Amino acid sequence: MLDSYRIVAIASSAGGIAALGNLLKGLPEDFPVPVLVVQHLDPRHKTVIADVLGRKSRMPVQLAEAGFQAQPSTVYVAPPNFHLLIDGDGVMSLSSSELVHFVRPSADLLFESVAGAFGARAIACVLTGSGSDGGMGVSAIKARGGTVIVQEPDSAEFKGMPHAALATGAVDFVLPLGQIAEVLCGLLEVREL
């Protein structure tokens, strides 16, 4: 019997900063699990994504750091040019291993590590983005009994990543961006804003 979800992992690429801000502003400050985010960023520039998303989110937003345990009610964003992984104890690690689908960080690697660590207690969300990153990862989440949410492609600025996730057949919810926070709150049985 599943007692509760333990983690939410979100992936986005092109158009993702605005989409992430929209989703995060709908989650309460006492959201009961950590939120891990892979957003494809240009590694040549210092990133301000944590500050930008922090202005929208009621939860604190920070760049993920290796060796730190992910805490509930906190958003962790993969730093540019590093894959973000997590183990069963909730300890995050960063990897500069090879690019996956031409990107680092990779949604696939994050989702696969989340699936391995948390199984049926994991929720994965795929938002707007070009390319196919996240497709293999949502299959891993589903294979371990987790829950997969995909932004409805017509509401996505870029449809590649949502379409790739949908093509796997491993999706539980296909939702307009504005409804994803509400469904996450429902799955986690927390009050909505």
Rank of each mutant, 00 (worst) to 15 (best):
M1R: 11
L2G: 10
R6G: 15
R6N: 12
I7W: 02
V8C: 00
A9L: 05
S12R: 02
S13E: 00
G15V: 02
A18I: 05
A19K: 02
G21M: 00
N22M: 06
N22V: 04
N22R: 09
N22P: 01
L23M: 04
L23P: 00
L24R: 00
G26Q: 06
L27F: 03
P28F: 08
P28A: 02
E29Q: 14
F31P: 02
F31Q: 00
P32F: 02
V33H: 01
L36D: 11
V37Y: 04
H40W: 11
L41C: 10
L41Y: 12
D42V: 11
R44G: 15
H45M: 14
H45N: 13
T47P: 10
V48P: 01
V48Q: 13
I49G: 00
I49H: 07
A50Q: 09
D51A: 15
D51L: 13
R55V: 03
M59E: 07
P60I: 07
V61W: 07
A64C: 12
G67T: 13
Q69F: 08
A70K: 05
Q71A: 14
Q71S: 12
P72F: 00
V75G: 03
Y76R: 03
A78V: 06
P79C: 11
P79H: 09
F82H: 15
H83I: 12
V91D: 04
V91L: 06
M92L: 15
S93W: 07
L94E: 08
S95Q: 10
V100H: 03
H101G: 05
F102H: 13
F102I: 02
A107C: 03
E112I: 06
S113K: 05
V114E: 03
A115M: 04
G116N: 14
G119K: 12
A120T: 05
A124G: 15
C125V: 15
V126K: 08
L127D: 08
T128E: 06
G129W: 10
G129L: 09
G131Y: 13
G131K: 11
G131Q: 11
M136H: 14
S139E: 15
A140C: 13
A140D: 08
K142W: 08
K142G: 04
A143P: 01
R144S: 13
I149V: 11
Q151H: 00
E152I: 05
P153W: 07
A156S: 06
A156E: 05
F158K: 02
A164F: 08
A167I: 04
A170R: 14
D172Q: 05
L175V: 01
P176H: 03
P176F: 04
L177W: 05
I180L: 10
E182V: 10
E182A: 13
E182T: 12
E182S: 12
C185E: 08
C185T: 07
G186C: 02
G186N: 07
L187G: 11
L187W: 03
L187P: 13
L188M: 14
R191P: 09
R191W: 06
E192D: 10
